[in-house]
Design a binder for these strands. Structure first.
Length: 486
RNA sequence: GGCGCAUUCGUCUAGUGGCCCAGGACAUCGCCCUCUCAAGGCGAAGAUCGCGGGUUCGAAUCCCGCAUGCGCUACCA
């Protein structure tokens, strides 16, 4: 896996990383992490750390990498410059390169003309056959020159792990640059050198690299090296069917963590985005993925990222968690929202009631708010009994208040029995009585089951909220009376 | 423009010549359960398998053409 640290890890890269990881683990190979930071301006140590964190969070551990060591380091491309240059010289010694004095401006102009004339924008070959003496003289004179690879026209083919037999005509390329005029090698060459030196056997990367691969294969051959196996993954697209971009999509793995997605859910989801086991299973742990993943079963077509499906996976994983564990995970989200948690036990009991109602950990603050806050503000519209009056609702709540006062809140069966009896005596449906109580104590018309909620909230809090609600109703009745008399 | 890859329900996908007038999952809708919301159970709707030609007794599956989408086309990675 060779990510560029130009941002926190991208969900599309994460999927590529996952497939690499699964492949490496299932054949008991080595999962190598190499940081491709040759783009100095865009790469930062912070981003590199973010990439490492993201991978780690998802549960992918690498055997070799910047902070893991290994026999083939360094694992940061920027630290391998000397080696790359060495190999550039080997390539030159073998007669595969030549100096090109064309300026960027000239090249850009050629491209423009070519485009205008509907020709492929391929290098003219202007400097290909320059006289050796002339080259030396111009170099001597301080003229800048890039190093180009001599391309011999022919069909280049390879057997892709995912896509099958692939072929491209090298005659279409023109000689491409392998060394910049400042002497630094180009990414596509550095990759060849590194993959070889690091004894990489399988390269799985995004389909946007296919055209690079053809060129790499030619370079391997020029260096007398055997290329590794290549596999090109379909891309993940956004709802607009474009390659996911950092600009307009939620794409950083970091963001998923912040929104309260579980790593296991994210892994399960991205694993199934472009791969399936061939039967109808869809819930997989990492170990199960390692066992059942087959690269040949990776889909060839691009996939659109479906957030609803991710949510579903996340919900099912949340429901599978032990309550204590879920509470532990929820805690930082709740605290970040500025809510205070009285004690662990209380939190756990509240979390247990919301567990099957939540999709993301970030939903917890909102869902648990009424458990953690002193007062609640019921909406009058729902506090009053459906098709009923404020007076009769107030009267009913008052009776409930007494019941809670007398019997407490811990015996749910008794509470339910009492309230149902009360509803019947009133000639109300049970729900018609339960709803005002629910709204009074939770401030919302949607909540966990009423009696569980009351028990977790505790007698004192239930009583004070009932009292507040009764006051609200009384005030409302008063206002209405004034309104009538005026 | 050139080159490459792809094309099955809205989405992820199963499918490799007859088991497919196409199966599963998410989302949607309905019913059940039920004190609300969920969760769960059951069910419905949803794909003339991009289009057009072939090959074949028979094609989503094989062949050809076209269309569309995406990617690449840098002294970026």
């Amino acid at each position: 896996m060779a990510p560029s640290p130009t941002g926190s890890i991208h969900i599309g890269n994460a999927r590529t990383a996952l497939y690499n990881y699964l492949l490496a683990r299932q054949c008991e190979g080595t999962f190598v992490l190499r940081i491709e930071d040759t783009s100095r301006e865009r790469s930062t140590p912070e981003f590199e750390q973010a990439v490492l964190d993201g991978l780690g969070w998802l549960g992918m551990d690498w055997d070799e990498g910047p902070n893991a060591g290994g026999d083939y380091g360094p694992y940061r491309q920027s630290e391998r410059l000397a080696t790359h240059k060495e190999w550039l010289e080997k390539l030159t010694a073998a007669g595969h390169t030549y100096r090109c004095f064309c300026t960027r401006e000239e090249l850009a102009e050629d491209r423009k003309v070519a485009q205008k004339e509907d020709r492929a924008p391929k290098y003219s070959g202007k400097c290909r056959d320059l006289d050796a003496n002339e080259v030396d003289a111009r170099l001597e004179a301080g003229e800048e020159a890039a190093l180009r690879f001599r391309v011999e026209p022919r069909a280049v083919t390879f057997d892709d792990l995912i896509l099958g037999q692939l072929e491209e005509d090298a005659g279409l390329w023109g000689d491409f640059i392998v060394g910049r005029s400042d002497g630094t090698p180009v990414y596509n060459f550095a990759v060849v050198v590194d993959d070889h030196l690091m004894a990489i056997t399988d390269v799985v990367r995004g389909g946007d690299h296919i055209s690079n691969t053809f060129k790499q294969i030619v370079m391997y051959e020029a260096l007398g090296l055997a290329p590794p196996r290549f596999g090109h993954m379909p891309l993940t697209l956004n709802a607009k069917r474009q390659k996911l971009s950092k600009r307009d999509d939620s794409v950083a793995v970091e963001e998923y963590r912040e929104q309260g997605y579980l790593p296991a859910a994210v892994v399960n989801f991205i694993a199934l985005l472009g791969w399936n086991p061939g039967d109808e299973r869809e819930l997989f742990t990492m170990d199960e993925l390692i066992e059942t993943f087959r690269i040949e079963r990776v889909t060839k077509s691009n996939a659109i990222f479906d957030f609803d499906r991710l949510d579903w996976f996340n919900g099912t994983y949340i429901r599978q968690l032990e309550v204590a564990e879920l509470a532990r995970l929820a805690k930082p989200f709740i605290e970040a929202a500025g809510l205070t948690i009285p004690d662990e036990d209380y939190l756990e009991r509240a979390v247990a009631l919301e567990q099957e109602r939540i999709k993301r950990l970030a939903d917890f603050p909102e869902a648990l708010r009424f458990f953690l806050v002193e007062e609640v503000t019921p909406d009058m519209k729902f506090l009053v009994k459906k098709n009923g009056t404020t007076e009769e609702t107030a009267a009913a709540l008052s009776t409930v208040f007494e019941l809670v006062q007398d019997f407490g809140v811990d015996d749910m069966a008794a509470m339910e029995e009492n309230l149902r009896a009360m509803a019947e005596a009133l000639g109300w449906k049970a729900g018609e009585l339960f709803m005002p109580i629910r709204v009074a104590i939770t401030g919302s018309k949607a909540s966990p089951p009423l009696f569980d909620t009351m028990r977790v909230l505790g007698r004192a809090r239930v009583l004070s909220r009932l009292r507040d609600a009764m006051r609200m109703l009384a005030k409302d009745a008063q206002d209405a009376a004034y309104g009538q008399s005026n």
